[in-house]
Simulated scan of single mutants.
Amino acid sequence: MDDERLRRWRLVMGGGEADGTGHRLGGADLGMDGALAAVYEGREGRGGGLGASAPRVARWLGDIRTYFPAPVVQVMQRDAIERLDLTRLLLEPEMLEAVEPDVHLVGTLIALNRVMPDRARESARAVVRSVVAELERRLAQRTRAAVTGALDRAARTRRPKRVADINWNRTIHSNLGNYLPETGTVVPERLVGHARRQRAVGREVVLCVDQSGSMASSVVYASVFGAVLASMRSLKTSLVVFDTAVADLTDRLHDPVELLFGTQLGGGTDVNRAVAYCQGLLTRPAESLFILISDLYEGGVREEMLRRVNAMTRAGVQVVVLLALSDEGAPSYDRENAAALAAMGVPAFACTPDAFPGLMAAAIERRDLGRWAEVNLSAPGGGAGP
């Protein structure tokens, strides 16, 4: 037991002979220790680091996949890219074929898109395609089910025009107070039904996504959700990305991979300009849903941005502000702008991808989104919303 305890401490501490345990590693433990040291000791010079050698990085990528499970591999890859400045090596096709794909890697690749050599571009697309396919598999069905159910509930009417439109179970439940025991009947004073389904668009949805560098994961998830929503005929979906300029990528929603490579991560932020553009897309305000995904650090005209959002809500648009659409929770964000939005009834909070279908349903049904976030999100955006 003492030897095993020393072995574990030696792996935790690292540092070779200077770790203080006196325990020598061998076999797989030695390989695992070397893989960790290459990233987490390289900067201080105590370990070997990965340097700029593509073959060495390739061997390291193989080693960590041998020693660690996929979630740990993804964390180590991300740390290696950030700590050791390996972004240049990601432009090599051999490197892209060796890495474990995840959302963070996709964010890095689309940020490098403008400087990526042609020989690496197809490998990068393959990585992005595999991650997008996995996200669609995980999220698409739940999103369609949640949105379809919300649209049906929103179409419910107290005045069904035809007998076939009456929801008898709900009608009976709503009129139980009118039960006549002597006749064994319920008098239906209030009818509950569904409006007959129309082929026409039920809602207009505009996703407006901040593509500054800190929002990389949000851009990836928003692109996938945008493609899913665009596939539903009951919605008219637009997707707009912005930094200091605005780009309408709606025509790429049929292919989220092409959409992602149409973004350009980095640069400044002009939220006001983006909101102004999106205002022009909303032709039926009372039946529209505007989702702004941004950390709200405004480089444009703040007062005008707030006035535009206020005008939207007064016109009947359901406005949702997400500080992030990612697995990491609330990022750094402009608390003053978030508080100003909350004061006009537009709470701002971070949302995980798994919670987004429920958020869409709540927004379509015009429920209290602040209350919804308190109940369904473990870490809303602090005082910026719920």
Rank of each mutant, 00 (worst) to 15 (best):
G382K: 04
G47D: 06
M312S: 05
R43C: 06
L359V: 11
L6K: 15
T143S: 06
V187R: 15
A230E: 07
D270Y: 00
G177Y: 11
G316E: 11
Q74G: 04
N337W: 02
G42I: 11
A195L: 15
I293M: 14
G267F: 07
Q141A: 15
G358L: 10
A373T: 12
R8V: 10
Y333C: 05
V320D: 10
R159L: 14
D270A: 06
I293L: 15
G381M: 03
G268H: 02
D270F: 00
G15T: 01
R314P: 00
S123I: 00
R196H: 12
G48N: 08
A98D: 01
E374I: 04
V375A: 15
S234M: 13
R114Y: 08
C278M: 00
V346S: 12
T269L: 06
V319I: 10
T352H: 11
H194V: 13
L6W: 04
A379L: 13
G45V: 07
G22Q: 03
M215P: 06
L180S: 12
P380D: 12
Q279F: 00
V257T: 13
A230V: 02
Y67H: 14
L176S: 08
T263K: 08
R8T: 10
P181E: 15
L325T: 09
Y40A: 06
G385F: 06
S378K: 14
E328L: 13
A338L: 10
A70I: 13
L30C: 02
Q77C: 03
A362I: 10
L377Q: 13
V205R: 02
D295H: 03
G20M: 01
V319A: 15
L207E: 03
P285T: 07
D118N: 02
E4I: 07
V192D: 02
L359A: 11
L105C: 04
M215F: 06
V128G: 08
G42N: 08
G34K: 10
F225E: 05
C208W: 00
R302I: 09
E365W: 04
V127R: 11
D327C: 04
I64Q: 03
G27D: 13
R8M: 13
R125E: 15
R196Y: 07
F225Q: 05
T87V: 12
A35K: 02
R46L: 14
L176Q: 15
Y40H: 12
N272S: 10
M76I: 10
R308M: 09
Y333H: 14
G20L: 01
A216V: 00
D255A: 03
R78W: 02
L325F: 07
R159P: 01
A361E: 11
D29C: 00
L176W: 10
D63W: 09
D334A: 10
T108W: 12
V75A: 12
E365N: 09
R366L: 03
E92K: 01
A343G: 15
G329Y: 07
P347D: 11
L6C: 04
L11M: 14
Q264C: 03
G213Y: 08
P93A: 03
S174T: 14
M1R: 09
I81T: 02
D255R: 01
V271G: 00
G193R: 09
L139N: 01
